[in-house]
Simulated assay, not measured.
Amino acid sequence: MSQLIVLGVADRETAERALDIAADLNKQQLLRLEDAAYAYKDDKGRPRIQQTVSTTGMGAAGGALWGTLIGLIFLNPLLGLAVGAATGAVAGKLTDIGIDDDMIKQIGTHLEDGRAAVFLLADITTADRVIDAVKPLRPTVIQTNLSKDDEHELVEALRA
């Protein structure tokens, strides 16, 4: 089962390092990363979100494929490609998979200036190795969907 863990980190660069660490742990099969993102405030104090999965791009690619196939049936593959890509991009933009975008925005608006939040939706298979990998970033737990006991253990493990 996937767990949502939101960690507070020092800044945007640390958030990017956290996502790099999560991607590396995913390659090592120490966790199965389903979605990841980070939020930070820009120089003007506006919340910004960086996501790792672009549903717009995936939708455009899928739409282009289906549009081309339909275009071949009606003997106009270029028109089918264009219409399919545009339709797929719009559908991808409206699709929300993984971590809830509204939650990311809400937490992003409450960040202190300079700080960032890292959002990980993952099935963690070896929690001790994952904690050891992110501990040098000195994260704080903002929110999880873990049980109270598991969340408390996570907070204590990151403090130690």
Rank of each mutant, 00 (worst) to 15 (best):
D149F: 14
Y38D: 00
T95N: 06
R17T: 11
G63K: 02
Q3I: 13
D42N: 14
D150A: 15
K148N: 07
Y38H: 05
L65E: 07
L25E: 03
D128I: 03
D35N: 13
D149N: 10
G57A: 14
G63W: 04
A36E: 03
V141H: 02
L154F: 05
I70H: 02
R48H: 09
F119L: 06
A91N: 09
G45R: 09
E112C: 04
V141K: 01
L19R: 01
G84M: 10
A91H: 07
D20M: 12
A91W: 12
A15P: 00
V6Q: 02
L94N: 09
V134I: 15
Q28H: 12
A157W: 06
R12E: 15
L69Q: 09
I131Y: 10
G45Q: 11
T109Q: 15
A116V: 10
L65Q: 07
T56S: 10
E151V: 07
L25C: 01
A37I: 05
V118K: 00
K44E: 13
M1V: 11
I70F: 13
T140V: 08
L25Y: 04
L31V: 11
D128Q: 08
R32M: 05
D24E: 15
I49L: 15
I73E: 08
V134D: 01
K44P: 00
E34K: 04
T14Q: 08
E112N: 09
G88H: 03
L75R: 06
G80A: 10
L146H: 06
A160T: 12
V141C: 02
I97S: 08
A122M: 10
Q50H: 14
T56P: 00
E151I: 04
A36C: 11
L7R: 01
M103N: 09
G98Q: 05
E112A: 15
K135G: 03
L111R: 03
G57P: 04
E16F: 03
D35V: 09
D123E: 14
A37G: 02
R159I: 02
L33I: 12
R12M: 11
T95Y: 14
A127D: 11
I142M: 14
A85M: 15
L30A: 04
E151W: 04
R159N: 12
G92V: 06
Q28N: 08
Q106C: 05
L31W: 03
D20H: 11
L31R: 00
G59A: 09
V118T: 04
D150R: 11
L146F: 13
I99D: 01
